[in-house]
Structures are given as C-alpha cells and as structure tokens.
C-alpha cells in the first residue's frame, strides 16, 4: 500500500457492544490478571536500584591501585565546569613521595560544591589523568550549606580506588631504570 496512512473503517456498534457489558467484563479480566502479576515496587530505602556503570552520580577523586593520587592539579576541570562548582588550590606533592616530589604537582585543596554541580560529567570527560569520576552515588543530602561542600578528603573518601589501564608513573620509573633520562 502506498504511503503509511491506512484508513480504518469504523463499523457501527453491535448490540452487545452498545450494552458495554462484554467490554466491562474484559476490563475486569485485565485488571484481575494484574492482581496476580508480581509487583514492580522497589522498597526504596531497603532495596536500592541497580545503577549502570556509565551513571553520572556524585563527582569524586580517585587513586590508582598503588595508592597514588591521580590528580595533578592541572585545573582543566575547574575551567570546564559550567556552573563553576569546582575550586582547586594547586600545591606541591608532599616529601614523603620521594619519586614524585618536584616532578608532578598535586591539589593542595580540591572543593566541589554539590549545590552548584549539575552532574554534567564534563570534568570527567576533560580530565587527562582520569582522576575525577562521576560514580554511582546519587543521593546527596545534608542539613547545612557547608555539608554540601565536598573537600579533598571527602572526595577521595567517596572516590576510593579505580582500576588503572595506564600506570603512567610505573612506566616512567621503568623507563628511568632502563637508562633513559626522565623528563625532569
């Protein structure tokens, strides 16, 4: 048939249709079969929904499996953040990490204001070190404005450790041991 439209001929209602009764019985059957079906309700606070891996929840900072802070305080996320929710204070890496001190930088303070954050995920997208991730945490609540200001400690606590595909720092050290000069 040409085209997508199809004319349906409307026949006048038959006597049984005019009484509504067969239709009502059919409707009752439908609703009764629904009673027998399992419920779809999620008992929320006790049961939690399954969250997909690509879900954009609360932004967090992560460490690599060696416990190294991944963020190098480049401030790209701060720059890209549309609602200006991120504020980074760059700083030196502490002396305890002998390899990295004076080689890379790290954030002295890293704040994300969850009252401003719009969960757009630009920070995760732009991060060259894969240090900031929007993870599955979606329920943010608090009693004061200060509670919504996630500082560095809180961000690392939320983020935890993420599996790393690159081990950038291990590769650097390996290259140095093999006799190549590092990019100091």
């Amino acid at each position: 048939m040409a085209g997508k439209t199809r004319a349906i001929e409307r026949t006048p209602l038959s006597l049984s249709e005019k009484t509504y009764l067969p239709q009502i019985v059919n409707g009752l059957k439908t609703t009764f079969s629904n009673i027998l079906k399992p419920n779809v309700t999620l008992q929320y606070p006790e049961e939690r929904p399954v969250i997909s891996e690509s879900y954009r929840g609360v932004p967090t900072l992560v460490r690599d499996p060696n416990g190294r802070e991944k963020c190098v305080s480049c401030q790209l996320c701060e720059f890209v953040c549309p609602p200006k929710a991120i504020r980074i204070t760059p700083g030196e890496i502490s002396d305890s990490e002998e390899d990295r001190v004076h080689v890379e930088k790290g954030p002295k303070e890293f704040e994300i204001n969850m009252l401003r954050c719009i969960y757009c995920g630009f920070c995760q997208e732009v991060c060259p070190e894969e240090a900031i991730w929007l993870q599955e945490d979606y329920s943010v609540s608090g009693y004061s404005r200060e509670e919504f200001l996630n500082n560095k400690d809180r961000l690392y606590e939320l983020g935890g450790t993420m599996p790393d595909n690159h081990y950038k720092w291990d590769k650097k050290k390996e290259a140095e041991l093999n006799g190549h000069e590092g990019h100091h």
């Binding site: 609703t31 629904n34 009673i35 079906k37 399992p38 309700t41 008992q43």
Partner: peptide, 10 residues
C-alpha cells in the same frame, strides 16, 4: 490494597 495490586504496586 486492591487498587495498588491492580496497578502493580504494594
């Protein structure tokens, strides 16, 4: 209760 069962709720 019946309304919620009919609508797939609890």
């Amino acid at each position: 209760k019946v309304s919620s069962w009919i609508q797939g709720r609890v």
